[in-house]
C-alpha cells in the first residue's frame, strides 16, 4: 500500500481543562474511503476540529508528509485537505453558485472555476437547477449536497465529512454516498465521520470505532460490520 495521505499519531486535544481525545492514532491512505464511527460524544467532531486547527492539540499529524503543527488552516486548504463541517455551515444568504465559488482557492483562473462548477453540477444535477437560489432556502439534502460540492470545488485530495447523514432522508444519504464512491474513483480520499454506523460501514473500505476519545477497534469495514460487539453496540442487532 502507498504511504498514508493522513497520519495521526498520539493526538491529544480538548476544551480547556477537559481532555476529549486521548493518544488517538489513525491513518488514511490515498483514494480510500475511511469511516470513523462512534456514538455521540465519542470525540469525532473534536478530532475534525483539531485537524482543522480550530482547537489547540498536541501530537504528530502529517498530511502528505507535511507536519500539520506548522500549517495554518489556510495552507491546509491550499494543500488539498478540506472539511465539510457538521451542520453543513453553508453561507445561507448566498446563492448555491456563490457557495461553490467560495470553495475554491483564491486566485483560481476563471476557466478553471467554470470547469469546477460544471463538474460539481454534473455530480449533483439538482444544484445546477438551484444555482441562483439562496442556499439557506433549500432542503436539508440539497444543502448537504451543496456543502459536499463546495468541498470538492478546490479539487481536494482529502475530504473529511462530519455527520453527513444527520437529519437527512435515506434516499438523500444514498445519493451522497454514491457520489463519494464516484469521486473516490477520481482519486479523492474520503474520511467519513458518522454516527450512522450502518451506512458508513457499507460504503467504507476501512473503519475505526471510537469511544470516549480513543480508537477501540479498527479494520476492514466489512469485518467490523460483522463484528458481534460492533453490531450490538452500534447497529442494534
Amino acid at each position: 500500500m502507498n504511504a498514508p495521505l493522513l497520519t495521526v499519531k498520539n493526538l491529544r486535544a480538548g476544551y480547556g481543562e477537559m481532555q476529549v481525545l486521548y493518544d488517538l492514532s489513525l491513518d488514511v491512505h490515498p483514494a480510500e474511503i475511511v469511516a470513523l464511527v462512534g456514538s455521540n460524544g465519542a470525540g469525532k467532531t473534536t478530532l475534525l476540529r483539531a485537524l482543522s486547527h480550530l482547537l489547540p492539540w498536541q501530537g504528530d499529524v502529517r498530511f502528505d508528509g507535511h507536519s500539520l503543527q506548522s500549517l495554518s488552516p489556510n495552507r491546509l486548504f491550499a494543500l488539498g485537505m478540506v472539511q465539510v463541517p457538521e451542520g453543513r455551515q453553508l453561507f445561507d444568504r448566498m446563492s448555491v453558485e456563490e457557495n461553490l465559488l467560495l470553495g475554491t482557492l483564491a486566485g483560481t483562473a476563471r476557466d478553471a472555476l467554470r470547469r469546477n462548477l460544471e463538474r460539481c453540477y454534473g455530480l449533483f444535477p439538482i444544484l445546477a437547477k438551484r444555482r441562483k437560489q439562496l442556499a439557506g432556502n433549500m432542503s436539508g439534502g440539497e444543502q448537504q449536497m451543496c456543502a459536499v460540492a463546495r468541498a470538492l470545488m478546490s479539487g481536494p485530495r482529502l475530504v473529511m465529512i462530519d455527520e453527513m447523514s444527520l437529519g437527512l432522508a435515506p434516499v438523500a444519504v444514498d445519493a451522497l454516498l454514491d457520489t463519494l464512491r464516484l469521486v473516490r474513483t477520481q482519486g479523492v480520499t474520503v474520511l467519513l465521520v458518522e454516527q450512522d454506523v450502518h451506512s458508513a460501514l457499507h460504503v467504507a473500505d476501512r473503519a475505526y470505532v471510537m469511544e470516549s476519545g480513543r480508537i477501540v477497534r479498527e479494520g476492514p469495514a466489512s469485518e467490523l460490520a460483522d463484528d458481534p460487539e460492533v453490531q450490538r453496540a452500534y447497529l442494534g442487532l
Binding site: 463541517p85 455551515q89 453553508l90 444568504r93
Partner: peptide, 16 residues
C-alpha cells in the same frame, strides 16, 4: 460576506 455569514465555514475554506 462569507465571514459575516458563517465564520467557521469561511475559516475552513481558506479565508483569514
Amino acid at each position: 460576506r462569507a465571514v459575516s455569514q458563517n465564520l467557521l465555514a469561511a475559516q475552513l475554506y481558506g479565508i483569514e
